[in-house]
Amino acid sequence: MHIHKEGYKSIAIGAIVFAVLNLLSFYFISSSLPIVSLLIFIVTLGTFLFLISFFRVPNRVLTTGENLVVCPADGKVVVIEEVFDEEYFHDKRLQISVFMSPANVHQNRNPISGEVIYNQYHKGKYLVAWHPKSSTENERHSVVIKKGNTEILVKQIAGALAKRIVNYLKVGQPVAQAAEYGFIKFGSRVDLLLPLGTKVNVQLNEVVKGGVTVLATLQ
């Protein structure tokens, strides 16, 4: 396991805040209110360790396969349904959505290999990530990856806590299945828009792992 590069700045700031708060607590509170000083230490240490945990990237054996759609994010499957896509396809697609809690790994991975043919950032709201309208109204970043005649749209969606979406892809760029393509900070979700008729390999509320779980099989 290692720490993601997107976490370096946040962890450094967290370490400074942790040190300053506890130094102040030691000098001004510990002698008169030792229990309060201990509580401050426990709470700040727990918060700092959680911050480090948020940016973790575990070592994994990644899944790849010619017709497989690999999960782009850790979390829980919250949507499996047909939807009408107004952004890119302008027709019906099969949507699979994965909700990421703050406790999940937040690195995002390519569901298939192919070429990036569309990349668009959209400003928006910060509705809770499981809200039905978060897919179309929240801050989001959409990417379409084309492999042969198949096109898949992957949408990073900000949630109520997530205020920054990081996307490393560019139009015309070739990408490898299960390789990293982005990161979302502090709670969010990822939507996949697949061709109708795609075989779904997961169920609602199933816990999935980015780069490991096979969400669907292309027909």
Rank of each mutant, 00 (worst) to 15 (best):
V212K: 15
K155C: 11
G65H: 04
I13C: 02
N205P: 11
Q95P: 00
G210L: 08
L39S: 09
Q120H: 13
A179W: 11
L24Y: 01
A160Y: 10
L21E: 01
L51D: 00
A19E: 03
V207I: 11
G65Y: 07
L196I: 08
Q203T: 14
S113V: 06
K146W: 00
V214I: 13
E115A: 01
P102G: 07
D85T: 06
S101F: 04
K155M: 13
H106S: 05
S53C: 10
I184V: 15
H2P: 06
S10N: 06
V78F: 07
L51F: 09
E87K: 11
L33N: 12
S37H: 13
L194E: 01
G14S: 02
T217K: 01
I157M: 09
V212L: 14
E115D: 10
N22D: 02
S134C: 06
N149W: 02
L45I: 07
G187S: 12
I52H: 01
F54K: 05
R56V: 08
P72N: 10
G210A: 12
Y121A: 07
L127T: 06
F26N: 11
E87T: 09
F84H: 07
R93P: 02
I112C: 00
D74R: 09
Y126K: 00
V83K: 06
A216F: 06
S142I: 03
E115M: 09
K76M: 14
R109W: 06
H122E: 10
D85H: 02
F26C: 06
N138D: 11
Y168R: 10
P174K: 13
L161F: 04
